[in-house]
Amino acid sequence: MNIHNYEKLWLVLAMVMIIGFISTVVYGATAVGIEMVNDEGGTIDSTALEEDDRFAEPRVERVGDNEYEAYVVARQFIFEPDPIEIPANSTLTFYVTSPDVIHGFEVVGTNANAMVIPGEVTELTVELNEPGEYGILCNEYCGGGHHTMEGKLIVQPEDEFEQGGNDE
């Protein structure tokens, strides 16, 4: 086996780069605390969402101080509830599922981006600090009206939310 020294050098550098990439991702997962969407959302009978207390009525629920949960149904070709309203400075966990086909759930221009698969519940938690509005779109082809499938996430100033959003 006749490998040139330059090639050996490149082999070493390539390995260093690969290990560097893996280390960066591990740093993001541990030090920054970024978690991947995983199997903790559980399964669900997608033909009977109306019998599920979370998804029969898609909604946002307050579950603690500054902690909210949004039960979202992504279906051809809408997101429910729409808009999703939440006060600023809160932690929001999305639970998203689908009664028909695979969809995408993307809060536009952010890292909140996941697949929605019928039979599975996608769970992801984000922190919403500043008031503002985000678009939500479906980024997995789901049928002829796919390009119209959009929604909204509205982060309201805390004082305004108490007045407008408390009566659910």
């Binding site: 995408g104 993307e106 536009v108 221009g109 952010t110 509005e133 985000y134 678009g135 779109l137 479906c138 980024n139 997995e140 082809y141 796919h146 390009h147 119209t148 959009e150 929604g151 909204k152």
Partner: peptide, 19 residues
């Protein structure tokens, strides 16, 4: 990088714009 989706006929939405 601005969030424009793939596999979409009309990435022109009514409720928001890509920043």
């Amino acid at each position: 990088l601005f969030g424009v989706p793939r596999r979409t006929a009309e990435p022109q939405y009514e409720g928001f714009e890509f920043v």
